[in-house]
Simulated assay, not measured.
Amino acid sequence: MILLISDLHLEEKRPEITRAFLRFLETRAIEAEALYILGDFFEVWVGDDGMTLFQHEIARALKALSQHGTRIYLMHGNRDFMIGKAFCREAGCTLLADPHIAQLAGERVLLMHGDSLCTRDEGYMRLRRWLRNPVSLFILHNLSLAKRQKLAKKLRSSSKEETRMKASDIVDVTPDEVASIMQRYKVRTLIHGHTHRPATHSLQIDGQAAIRIVLGDWDRKGWALQVDDSGFHQAPFDLN
């Protein structure tokens, strides 16, 4: 059994999500061969050197799971793209590139966070290109921790305001981009998060049946996609 989750947006201000996640690690995840976390694991990440006691606690819980035998894979999201090697060493997880090809249920599956598929959101895509540019990342990593924290707070505030004002289709994936990247990687299954719209979508890629599975975010419910011999199954569960 393999589990995939995304968009927990862990932060100290939402202890119920943290408690649910720690229970998830101790119950379902401990029985899994592997756990994939496809981005926005934390609400914000300003650098491994800025880790809080809360974030160290999460790292310790992941490390305990990995030591029990569950392989843990982590992908950057748009909120935590500055997670680095130091956190991964402490948490016992492997950092994946976005996109990433994994072998799941006997087939090649494309894993992504999902924000790069939202190409109709031109303002966000410009910001994403700037933030992920190696030069920009170098500059960000070399800012003082206080400046990074201030910048992250400003970006979060402006992002929430802008998202409220955008049409729903603008902040969802672009169908043509989905088809394009699935054709490029020659896959029939794509799994991603980011949009907070859990569902399984049927589509056609080069005349063949394909699916796009959108992982759910952890807000009023928790969500996990389970992959086993019978296929792909996503279901919500109570956070309490």
Rank of each mutant, 00 (worst) to 15 (best):
P175T: 10
L127I: 13
A146S: 11
M112R: 13
Y73H: 14
F21S: 01
Y185C: 03
L74N: 03
R184F: 07
R129P: 00
G92N: 06
L117A: 05
D80F: 09
T52C: 06
L104M: 04
T70E: 03
A146L: 10
Q234A: 14
T94Q: 12
E161K: 14
I17L: 07
S116F: 11
S202L: 15
I205D: 09
L74K: 05
D121F: 02
H68I: 02
G222T: 05
S144K: 14
Y73P: 04
R132Q: 12
K166P: 01
L4E: 06
D219N: 11
E162A: 12
D115Y: 12
K13M: 13
M51S: 00
R148Y: 03
T119V: 10
T94N: 09
E122F: 03
I170Q: 01
H233T: 12
L155H: 03
H9W: 03
R128V: 11
D228P: 05
R220C: 06
A61N: 13
S136Q: 07
I170R: 03
T195I: 15
A209F: 12
L151H: 00
R188N: 08
R156H: 11
S116N: 10
D219I: 10
M51F: 00
H100T: 12
A86S: 11
Q55D: 04
D80K: 08
L62R: 09
Q149S: 09
A152G: 02
Y124W: 04
L38N: 05
T200Q: 13
C118I: 08
E16G: 06
K221F: 15
S66P: 09
E122G: 02
A167R: 10
N142Y: 00
F42I: 04
R148V: 03
H100L: 04
H9Q: 07
P134T: 04
G222A: 10
L38R: 07
E43W: 06
Q204D: 15
S144N: 06
L10K: 03
I17S: 01
F41R: 02
K154L: 12
D206C: 11
E162Y: 10
D217N: 13
Q103D: 14
S202F: 14
L117H: 08
W130K: 15
R197P: 10
L38I: 09
G50Y: 01
I5K: 06
L95P: 03
Q103G: 05
F237P: 02
L145A: 07
G47C: 00
W45M: 02
L22D: 02
L62E: 07
I83M: 14
D238R: 12
L215Y: 11
T163M: 09
F21Y: 09
L65G: 00
N142K: 06
F54V: 12
F138L: 05
Q226N: 04
L111T: 02
V171Y: 00
M82P: 01
V178N: 06
R71M: 14
A209Y: 09
A235F: 15
A29M: 04
L145F: 05
D229H: 12
S202M: 15
A209H: 14
D238C: 13
T189P: 03
S157R: 10
F138H: 06
R220K: 14
G39N: 04
I101Q: 01
G231Y: 00
T119I: 10
I170T: 02
W223C: 08
R132W: 07
G216S: 13
G84N: 03
A209V: 12
I58H: 06
M125W: 01
L3Q: 07
